[in-house]
Each structure stands twice: as C-alpha cells, then as structure tokens.
Design a protein around this nucleic acid. Sequence first.
RNA 1: GGGGCUGUAGUUCAGACGGUUAGAACGCCGGCCUGUCACGCCGGAGGUCGCGGGUUCGAUCCCCGUCGGCCCCGCCA
Length: 602
Amino acid sequence: MPQNLNKTLRTLCEDIQESDIGKKFTFKGWVMHYRDHGGLIFIDLRDYSGILQIVFDENIDKESFKIAKKLKNEYVVSITGTVRKRPQGTENTGLKTGSIEIISESVDVLNTCEVLPFQIDEENDVNEFTRLKYRYLDLRSKRLKENLIFRSNFTYLIRDFLNNKGFFDIETPFLTKSTPEGSRDFLVPSRLNEGHFFALPQSPQLFKQILMVSGFERYYQIVRCFRDEDLRSDRQPEFTQLDMEMSFVETEDIISITEDLFALIFNKLLNIKLEKPFKVLDYDEAMDKYGSDKPDTRFELLINNLTDTFTNSALNVFKDNIQKGGVIKAICLPNGSNLLSRKDIDELLNIVKDFGAKGLAWTKVGENGLLEGGIAKFISDDEREKTVARLGAKNGDIIFYQSDSKKTAESVLGRLRLHLAKTYGLIPEGRFDILWVVNFPLFEYSEEEKKIVSVHHPFTSPAEKDLNKLENNPLSVKSDSYDLVLNGEEIGGGSIRIHDTKLQGKIFEILSISPEEAKAKFGFLLDALSFGAPPHGGIAFGVDRILMLLKNENSIREVIAFPKTQKAYCPLTDAPSVVKDIQLRELGIKLRETAGKNLKSE
RNA sequence: GGGGCUGUAGUUCAGACGGUUAGAACGCCGGCCUGUCACGCCGGAGGUCGCGGGUUCGAUCCCCGUCGGCCCCGCCA
C-alpha cells in the first residue's frame, strides 16, 4: 500500500524483492538497529513502508564504512547501494525483506538524533506520561503506527461506502451555542461579543437535523465532538464520531445501512464475516437478563428472576423486599465452588457494595442439586428445586442472589456478571459480538432533578404504538431509538427524530420545559422544523471506541495520535496553560481570586 | 467530589527492622569483533529515591501534606 512520492530519487524499503537483485537504489529512512561487527556493519533501515537490512563492508566502500561507524539509533540517512541475496543461512524469516540486503556504496547522514528518552518498540511498558511527552517517538513504534494506519483505512472505507450511497459530507460549526442539556460544555469566549461565549459542540445533533430540513436527505461527517467531563480509558474530552442523518427513513433503514457498513469494515479490515441481520435485543430483555443496556453477549452467566419462587421466603430480607415491590434475582457461576475461596466470596461482598448492593446472598450447589452454605438453610425444598431448575445450576456452581428494587438488583448483578467474567476468564478472546438494543424508554425519572428527563435527547421520537400513552403514562412510552453494542461497549446510537412541532411541544411539556425556555434553548431548531421538515432520523458512532475494540486495545489513547492524560492534560504541548493577562483583557475576562491557585508560570 | 494502585539511574524494575559505598537489565560512553538481525565480549559514566514538612542521633524507607500518573465510582449522546 505504501507509495513512493519521488520515484527517481528514492525507493521504499519494502518495495525491494528478490527480482531486484543486482540493481542499484537509494533508500531514505531511520536507523532502527545498529550492529557493528568490526569489519562489517549491519543496520536495519526503517521507512514508512517497512524494514530493510543494509550492509557496510570496508572492502566494498571505504567511505560508506567510515560514515557508518558513526551512525547511531534513529539517525536519518540516505543510502545508495546494490541489492544482493543474503548468504545462505543468514536469511531473516521475520522480515518481509529478509532474504535480501543492500550493500552500501554511499551514505549520507541527513540528520542525527539525541539519545532517546525511551527505546522505541521496547517490549517493556514505558510510563504513559513519558510516551505522551515524546509522542512523536512513541508513534514510530510498530504498534501505534499500525493503529493509526488502521484508523486511516477505517475512515477511508467509511467515506467511500457512504459517498457511494449518496451521502454528503457536510461540515458543521465548532463555535456554536451552549446548550444546558447533556454534558458540560467547553466554552470559548467571544472577543467581538464581550461577555458572550461559544460552546464547542457535544455533537452536531441540531445541525444535522437542520440539514435534513434543508433537503440534503443524506448527511454524514467524521467529526470531533467535545464534552467537558471526567476521563476514562474509553473517554477523552475530544473524541471523534461518525455522524449520520437521513430523511424519509425508518428505523429499519438505518439499521440496514449500518449493518452493511459494519459488515464491510469487518470484512475488509479484519477479514471477519459478520452475520446479517445482527442480533436485536429489547431494552427490557437486556436489563432483565444482562442487567445492562449494553450487554456483553460473549458469555452466558445470565440473570434470572426468582421473585415468584421466594414470595414466602423464610428470609425476611427476601420476603419484605418482595412485599415492597422488589425482586429477587440471581446469577449462577459455573464451577464457582472451585474457583472461589470463602475469602473470595467475602471480598465479593465489598465489591457489590460498591455497585450499590445492600448485601450479597449466595449458596453453593452440591450433589443432586442440594444447596449448601450461605443462605441455604433458609431455602425450602420447593424453593431450592425451582431455583436450581431455573438457573440450570449444577454440582460445584455458586449462585449469587440480589434482593432489591428491580433497577438496583439488575444493575448490581449486571456488574457482578462482568466482574466475575473478567476475573475468571469467561470472556472468549478474539471474538466480536455485535448487536442492537432497541425499544428504550423515551423518558426516565431523575431523582436528582426531581423531574422527567429524556433518556436519549428531547428530539427522539416516541414509538408510534405508544403515542396514546404520552398523556397519561409518559414513563411507559418507548422511543424509536437504537443502540449498537460491540462486546459490551456501546459503540453507536441514534433515533428517529420528531419532525412535528406539535409533538415536539408536547414532549417539552412532559419534560417541564416551558415554551419560552424551549425557544431560548432550541428556538432555531424548532423554527426549522416548522418549515416543512421531512421525517428523518440518524445515528452516531464512537470512532475511537470502535477502533479500540477492533485493535484489541485497552484504551482509546492507543488509537488517537495525540491523546490527553486522565486530567485532560497534554504532556507534549503542555496544554492547557495560563495565558497572558492582555489576552484575558481583550476578552473582558477576569479570573476569580480562587481560580488556579497553583498556576504554572508562563 | 470519592475509592484503589502507583512515583527509586535515560527506560523497565529490584531493594533495605530506619544505619555508613542504593543494585540489575536494557540504553548511553570507550574499546574489541566479517554474517549479525534484541549481535556478542571487555571496561566505564550515570541517582535531589516526585516535591514539601514532621518524627528521629540518622529518613529513599515511618507519619502528614502536596503534585503527577493509571484504573474505577460519581459525571458523560
């Protein structure tokens, strides 16, 4: 795939093959390894195509040899020499060019290199801060180079696919309006409008809908989004989305084009055939069986409902909870008795408490489906038989129970499920499980805000079948939305949007957003929707996260050229940093006394 | 905002009941070496033990604080 930009002057390392033996070429690149044998020197020359061995022999070219004596790692050199076959027995099967080598007839040092702060391509893990500070060196490593080239191929494939499907790549503003909904905005002060601020977009959501009103019908963009929230291994404050929107479509259309796109990506980039259509899981079922709206389906360990079994339980925690409307749910860890010591089980209690659990009931499964240990003595024969049957529990298994509200029990067991799977290696390597989660609730009740809020965003269309429930039972209304989940990570999501201003007004009403407030926040979108907005919908994908999963990396930092630390700091550029007082003055900004107590001086 | 782990040579790590010269490997510097490919061999240099304070006769080690890093919770379409 690498191409030579200057054919007459330079040849790329991996363009050379055995058929070139005897021919003379010029190569340019970096000294990757240097091996001095006294009268004979070898270097591995690296350019962006790959690696090629160069030999310096004092009997062949004294001048070359003299210069080569002074070469060091990562010097940049230009070498002219003749291709020859390596002597028998000295071939290197680990190299693409391992059967040949170049005998140098002339060498120029184009640049020298300081002693490196860390060794490139070392198998030791170098401190990530140091790697980020010298990111340009880290990017010379095979792994990161391959990741970024993979990323380039990935976005190319997407653009090619969508362009051919009649999509238009349209840019939307980075300097835009702050919206209080959603995550915290990055603010940018306006010099020409003192005291006013732009926000960097959390996503191009509103603009892509407006483009549908404009009649483009098919829009996409591979675009940076900004959210000022705390970082995680799969979250950076600036990240890249593949953003798409289409007019005159329904959920099935969006699902179908997404499946085609992902099948193509997996096929072309990983040589993996994805089965179409993808699995589809109802939100309720996902919560019920996996305790998560982004279920990891690569392993079983499903959650089961035992509420009906334990209505008359001798355990008051079970019985009282059920009477209060709670549930009893459980998962069964195969062979758990052998995997976990008593101490491990005790430690699990602390772990599930962090997940929000009040406790952790458990029983071991013995011979003939008898239960032992934990709460076994409080379980009647009838309860035991039903429990063992429902969970399919076998001798040696451990069953973990949660007695709590439906929401808490499911979320605790869902997280325990993932914890156990990771700890006891239940997740198969190298497998990709992709599926849709659909039928999300449109609203949920926010304890924090004491009001109904959108699960997705306020422009998500209610499912048509539930329109009649909007008035009386809004929390039971499902939305016309869909999430794409890969290996238990949400990699994309979208919805059919509301294109009717009347329905949109109704939604705002349910969300306790007054017409005035709606107008102030989203007036431009509401105006747009009132001028002949077509039915439309779309989806957006987390590009960094997808790449992380496809490349089997543990952090999105490994697929981003210049990522930030967990404090959103860039060690390479030392950003963010303090600015000159005059810059603030121009913006009409004065720092609070308490701001930046330990400012780094400029 | 909270929890966990962590900071010793350029890098990755070891280390000491609190005790006098803090080690190894790789890298670096010098030398030797004509078939290596993480070349090999010989020799050498290199450390405010993150920073500040405290306890102590004495702290890199113990205590407190602080800064940085990673993971997670909260937060996040």
